[in-house]
Design a protein around this nucleic acid. Sequence first.
DNA 1: ATGTCGGCATTGTGCCGA
Length: 259
Amino acid sequence: MKIASFNINGIKARLAALSAWLDDAAPDIVLLQEIKTVDEGFPREPFEERGYNIATHGQKGFNGVAILSKYPLEDVVRGLPGGEEDDQARWIEATVTGRRPVRLCGLYLPNGNPAPGPKFDYKIAWMDRLKARAAELLRTEEPVVMGGDYNVIPQDADAARPEAWAEDALALPESRAGFRRILHLGYTDAFRARHRGAGHYTFWDYQGRAFERGNGIRIDHMLLSPQAADLLDACRIDTGPRAGEKPSDHSPILIELDA
DNA sequence: ATGTCGGCATTGTGCCGA
């Protein structure tokens, strides 16, 4: 089962690039972030033509997450639990069954800048809720995949220029601690289970020719419950789309699960 | 801090968010 996460920065602006990438990479499942549209505005045809089922959790103009899946999507949940007054669309869950069931969670964690401030407070509070949901999912003892744009640079080795991010909400100690707390529950960072060292990035700013200069950061992550981690065959970042026409500022990250 | 982008409100172009 090949599962990808891709912050596409606007589904309507990314139709051509995303369609081409789906044809090339042929993922079974894609967790999409920043669809930037309401559910009714999501262009379903290009994906249904390619055999994908679709579940969306959108909002007007900003944020928004979705799942594309060649497997039927069951038990879809929209919105991160514990946020009755949170109206931002950043979380979607569904179960797919290949040789065995896998619980999928697609997430778009708040950016949090500027920090300090209310946006950073919202980020940290959202991470607390994420931790609570992650702990709940562990208790199912089923394979769980939580993939998305975490907006966290876990360590300095995950940035080409860590000093440039030192005061940024993506790298502040409090953000890193929130990310570690989830790992400490028992989740595995799939990419770090397979690759070591610096120079592996999933995001490059549109400004300053950042991609051409290798000035990136690793902020899109696939976190696996123990039952999912035991099924992990491979994890890679596909920088191909970032070099193509009219790209997103993120590249997709993929895992292969023996499921 | 920004030389970039996407979407929005809007008919020109500035604002927000990233």
